[in-house]
Design a protein around this nucleic acid. Sequence first.
DNA 1: TACGCGTGGGG
DNA 2: TCCCCAAGCGT
Length: 291
Amino acid sequence: MAIDPDILIDWFAEQGRDLPWRRAECTPWGVLVSEIMLQQTPVARVRPVWEEWLERWPRPSALAAAAQGEVLRAWGKLGYPRRALRLHAAAEVIARDHGDVVPSDVDTLLALPGIGVYTARAVAAFGYGKRAPVVDTNVRRVVARAVHGAGDAGPASNTRDLADVEELLPDRDAPAASFSAALMELGALVCVARGPRCADCPLHADCAWQHAGRPAYTGPAKPVQRFAGTDRQVRGLLLDVLRGTAEPVPKERLDLVWSKAGQRDRCLDSLLVDGLVEQTPDGRFALPGEY
DNA sequence: TACGCGTGGGG
DNA sequence: TCCCCAAGCGT
């Protein structure tokens, strides 16, 4: 079953959220920053940080000139701080090799650190108004239901998912970009993972899932992401100490955050390997690029 | 393809 | 409480 672009785009015009990175005056750089921050992180937590970043670093070259440690502090508790480091690295490349202008071409974007299949297409579509299939978790869920009549999307498959959306996408650039934004917004506001609000859905009449009687999802269960007790938690605790101190700290200070010495040391090592932490010549630890 | 990677809010 | 989930990426 297909999706009527006009119905979806009209719904988006009326019901879509007024987010700062969607305003007409937002630059492609602002769009790129938003897309990186929004990877696995909810809009409500991103918005205030995005505002600070765009004020402080309105162009890629401005971010590129900042120290990594400052960037990580400004990232705060958005999570997955490697994203901040990669965005900083991408800004350096954009400033140096692309005249401080975010590329509009999908393949050029894909070559930048931290920019993958989703983000490259999102920047092309939302930053430059181009026609490019944009597939995120929301889009996959909406397509699974409205088009395929399934309760939810199965495991991601780049080739398949992109082909699915390619078929739905309007031909011209501007409507295609609006359609992509609308599809994502529908998944974020109405066709949500738990408790979809079908009564409010503009696609209700033509939804394959509705017509099939809203069958439950039958595919493989999604892997559970545990957190308590994992290295991810310990790394987060270690980084939180370093974000909160102006001066490098001795290892004894870091030892306080987690009782298991083996796991603690493994995590500190991995943070050093990832470039999220640096050791000073006197053996203390700090965020990178400041000492 | 499967896994590791932060953090916090809502049901 | 606990569990699920949130605009993915790199390996």
